[in-house]
């Protein structure tokens, strides 16, 4: 029994040294990360322009631009390190879950306020709960806000939010131009001291992304059998809950494929697992996951959640060790 950890300890660094991690870091950065944030900056620019053109909550151009930009955020939202975390930009773009109902409170205050909405710097200092896509969703789709305050004031709030989303998306995309260098060239001038550390950051993005989709995007509406919580589904007001599950899986499939490129057998099982889960999500035809409240619908959502958990197991037990992720008893516990 004692020899097993000893042998593992000897072999891991050798395996790590035997492989050049540079190509994977370059590939993920150039082909997975940078295009996503460039696309988000572009889509949020169009969202801002749409709100400038017409800011009624039911304006088709505004709603289309909202969906398009939100899609691009969800497709990038697993990349939670570096530029997205500076100044809590990612949280300001998407404040969810909102367990204490901060967003409607913040929006009511913004609608009641007379100043500051046309000053992007001042707006950026307001609560993150009243900013970002989830605040915008309530302004566009929640009947409670369709009639709150004057139309002009509601319009100003919508424009302030879209401008703020675009500012944050631009800032992330711009910062990534330099952060791409520190991620792909670890060392003394980088927060990552080695290729392994940079790779571990990407691995964490994959595993945390899967965890969030399984435990939070699906787990929150699932609740318990006795007490399902369909009203806790993500972005249900605009009918996007299932779409977020699908978009996140598609994005994570791409990242998983790039991280497993040196291990074809693992890549194959990951790809099969992702395809199975994505197909199942597409077949659910339940955009707001309302089915969690019925026994039959619930089974189908639970089956999807199980498939994502199976993927998490492959990622943790098969992919992780190839990237030098320690599987310590306490280091993985997180308590």
């Amino acid at each position: 029994m004692r020899t097993i950890p000893f042998v593992t300890a000897l072999l891991l660094p050798l395996t790590a040294m035997a492989q050049d991690r540079g190509p994977i870091l370059d590939d993920v950065t150039q082909s997975h990360i940078l295009p996503r944030f460039a696309q988000l900056a572009e889509a949020t620019q169009q969202l801002k322009a749409a709100a400038e053109a017409e800011c009624a909550a039911d304006a088709p151009g505004l709603r289309d631009a909202y969906h398009a930009a939100f899609d691009d955020w969800i497709s990038a939202s697993h990349l939670r390190f570096g530029p997205t975390e500076t100044g809590d930009r990612a949280f300001a773009i998407a404040f969810w879950p909102d367990t204490k109902g901060f967003t409607p409170k913040a929006l009511s205050q913004l609608i009641a306020a007379d100043t500051g909405l046309d000053d992007p710097d001042a707006f950026a200092q307001t609560s993150i709960a009243g900013r970002g896509f989830f605040a915008l969703e309530q302004m566009l789709y929640d009947p409670a806000f369709a009639a709150t305050g004057e139309a002009e004031q509601r319009c100003a709030v919508i424009r302030a939010i879209t401008t703020d989303i675009n500012r944050n998306a631009d800032a992330i995309a711009e910062d990534w131009q330099s952060y791409a260098l520190v991620l792909t060239q670890p060392g003394a001038d980088s927060p990552y001291r080695s290729d392994e550390e940079a790779l571990q950051e990407l691995f964490k993005a994959l595993s945390a992304g899967l965890q969030f989709t399984s435990e939070t995007r699906l787990g929150r509406p699932l609740g318990t059998f006795d007490r399902p919580r369909p009203n806790r589904a993500e972005a249900r007001r605009s009918g996007r809950a299932l779409r977020h599950v699908e978009l996140s899986l598609v994005a994570l499939r791409d990242l998983a494929a790039r991280l497993s490129v040196d291990h074809p057998d693992i890549a194959t099982s990951l790809d099969a697992g992702f395809n199975k889960a994505i197909t199942r999500a597409q077949k659910l035809e339940d955009p707001v996951l309302a089915g969690v409240a019925t026994p039959q619908g619930r089974l189908r959502v639970e089956a999807l959640q199980q498939e994502i958990n199976d993927l998490r197991a492959i990622v943790a037990t098969e992919l992780g060790p190839t990237l030098g992720i320690s599987a310590g008893f306490n280091s993985l516990d997180g308590d």
Binding site: D88, F95, A129, E215, T216, G219
Partner: peptide, 16 residues
């Protein structure tokens, strides 16, 4: 950190 058993050990309120 706020957690809820429905969502396992997921952290629900990091920004706040």
């Amino acid at each position: 950190i706020e957690t809820h058993p429905d969502t396992g050990r997921s952290k629900l309120n990091i920004p706040t």
